[in-house]
């Protein structure tokens, strides 16, 4: 009987405590209720939720608050899908913009076999620190440093260094552009995901100078600009640039390039 009573007292006490605490919580939530913009939550629900920080805000919550408060445009998230942007624009009552899916692209193909090493760098393992030292690790002064600052920066594990050159995993890359911002050589740019060709070299020097340091680098012969049927390629100094709004993806430039430095994509 004593044991039964003890159990009863225990059950009653915990129940009463639970009810008291529950009531206190309800009372507190009523008393300290804070009005929030209902649009903020709707916007937040349509954001990717990766908190990558590519928008420049402290995370998806922060950018949702900014969009709802009108402090940021509806398309503030650079990696938003078309579907999500449509919904956010609808919530905010603005016309939806078209999303062009972008991805990072490394404009260097100078792997260990193609470019030889000039110095043995043992300093801080960071591309920016290596560039600050003033001496290029590789013979080519314009190529990828290969210490992987972009790899550390990428929130999506989409970039890796292979044979001394950074390479982007197109399946994982969402085009946030954080790698492009940290590359001290400015080798990474955001390009359309549906591009058919891309130039994989950034060396602005003339043919002989490039040939002396790299076995695949662009010589600046400009044959690609001449053979392009739509005139989508133009020369920026000694480096060809592709105007993707004119490019029809025929791949002629990739076929005629004597160095094979124009990459072709099947997507």
């Amino acid at each position: 009987m004593d044991a039964f009573l003890a159990i009863l007292i225990a059950v009653v006490t915990v129940t009463v405590l639970g009810i008291l605490i529950g009531t206190a919580l309800v009372a507190a939530s009523n008393k300290y209720h804070v009005e929030t913009d209902p649009r903020e939550e709707k916007v937040r629900n349509n954001l990717p939720g990766n908190n990558c920080g590519a928008c420049g805000f402290a995370g998806c919550d922060a950018v949702a608050a900014a969009i709802a408060a009108g402090k940021a445009p509806a398309d503030a998230c650079p990696i938003c899908s078309q579907e999500a942007l449509d919904k956010i624009s609808e919530v905010m009552g603005v016309a939806a913009k078209e999303v062009i899916p972008m991805e990072a692209y490394v404009h260097c193909a100078g792997t260990c076999g193609h470019v030889s090493q000039k110095i043995n760098y043992v300093g801080i393992q960071d591309c920016r620190a290596a560039v600050l030292s003033g001496i290029s690790i590789w013979e080519c002064d314009y190529g990828c440093v290969g210490l992987g600052t972009c790899v550390k920066e990428c929130p999506y594990n989409a970039i890796s260094v292979k044979d001394g050159v950074a390479i982007v995993n197109s399946k994982r890359c969402v085009g946030c552009g954080k790698c492009a911002a940290v590359c001290p050589k400015g080798l990474i740019s955001l390009e359309r995901k549906d591009k058919k060709v891309a130039v994989r070299c950034s060396n602005p020097n003339k043919g002989t100078a490039v040939k002396n340091v790299c076995s695949v680098g662009c010589l600046g012969c400009s044959i690609c600009t001449k053979k392009c049927p739509t005139g989508a390629i133009y020369m920026n100094g000694n480096t060809p640039m592709i105007n993707y709004s004119k490019c029809i993806g025929c791949g002629t430039c990739a076929d005629v390039c004597p160095r094979g430095i124009i990459n072709r994509f099947d997507n």
């Binding site: 605490i21 206190a24 919580l25 507190a28 300290y32």
Partner: peptide, 16 residues
């Protein structure tokens, strides 16, 4: 029980 409820109430209080 008490700690969980306490933290909840404190959070609401601070938010307001």
């Amino acid at each position: 029980l008490v700690i969980a409820a306490l933290v909840q109430i404190v959070e609401m209080f601070l938010k307001k």
